[in-house]
């Protein structure tokens, strides 16, 4: 049986992890490789690297980093942030990333989704959707959550599935950063709208929150701070979920 996945996210700027991470026994808390290795050791199923480097010229640093990660890490990893073209997608995959994710560029130019799916295959293409309840519907946001787009997230999820997305990384801007739990109504609505796997993101604060997300059909759940600040280790979380009967990879 396929295991439900636990995914850790790392924000990267110019090749370095930006948010302070309070792991013990880490020599360099800014080194993405060292942190990723630590996560792998603890049993993480997948790692997402979000590149927030603003300038396009510095993207070469990202590609070098992707190559280094591919050489050092033995779990699948996904890279995204500011990707705008099929050429960039191809380069990142060629450098060794297992998947790429698109967000703003997909909304600006939905054709990019189908082109990318053709070039790298749906299995390697994740579409990230940032959504926020506006009183009437869950509205899609882009540009790192700064720009409302007037699009219904449920409709957009169906659209990207039709265009060839292999997976949806769904972040609720209402729950993100709260540590009060994933946005269950939003996640449930998207899970029911599409056939492709949905990764729940935003709001994880305790192991129960992951259980809730899996119970309503999320295939994976992503978190950053819960792991970064050592509140729970990946292993503790997985042991909890296994006890609850969730199919989970425990080594």
């Amino acid at each position: 049986m396929l295991a439900k996945r636990i995914i850790a996210a790392l924000d990267i700027k110019e090749g370095r992890v930006v948010k302070g991470i309070k792991f013990q026994n880490i020599r360099d808390a800014g080194d993405p490789i060292e942190l990723a290795k630590r996560y792998e050791e603890e049993g993480i199923d997948e790692i997402v690297f979000l590149d927030i480097t603003a300038s396009y010229e510095k993207r070469k640093i990202l590609l070098d980093l992707v190559k280094r990660i591919a050489e050092e890490i033995y779990v699948p990893f996904t890279v995204g942030g500011g990707i705008r073209s099929v050429e960039e997608i191809r380069e990142i995959i060629k450098s060794g990333a297992d998947k790429v994710f698109l967000n703003t560029a997909a909304v600006d130019n939905p054709k990019l989704v189908s082109e990318a799916a053709k070039v790298v295959g749906s299995a390697n293409l994740v579409i990230a959707i940032d959504a926020k309840w506006n009183g009437k519907f869950w509205e899609v946001y882009t540009h790192g959550g700064r720009k409302a787009r007037g699009i219904d997230a449920i409709e957009w999820a169906k659209e990207v599935e039709r265009l060839g997305a292999g997976e949806i990384l769904l972040t609720s801007m209402d729950t993100d950063g709260t540590q009060q739990g994933f946005d269950i109504p939003l996640t449930k609505a998207i899970v029911e709208a599409v056939d492709i796997p949905v990764i729940a993101s935003g709001g994880a604060g305790s192991p129960e929150h992951f259980y809730e997300a899996f119970k309503i059909g999320a295939e994976a759940a992503l978190a950053a701070s819960i792991f970064h600040y050592g509140k729970y280790t990946v292993r503790e979380l997985k042991e909890y979920l296994a006890k609850k009967g969730v199919p989970i990879r425990l080594e």
């Binding site: 049986m1 396929l2 295991a3 996945r5 299995a123 292999g166 056939d195 492709i196 295939e219 990879r249």
Partner: peptide, 10 residues
């Protein structure tokens, strides 16, 4: 079944 089969399996 859904294709591709992707993820961790036993």
């Amino acid at each position: 079944v859904r294709v591709p089969h992707i993820g961790w399996n036993q």
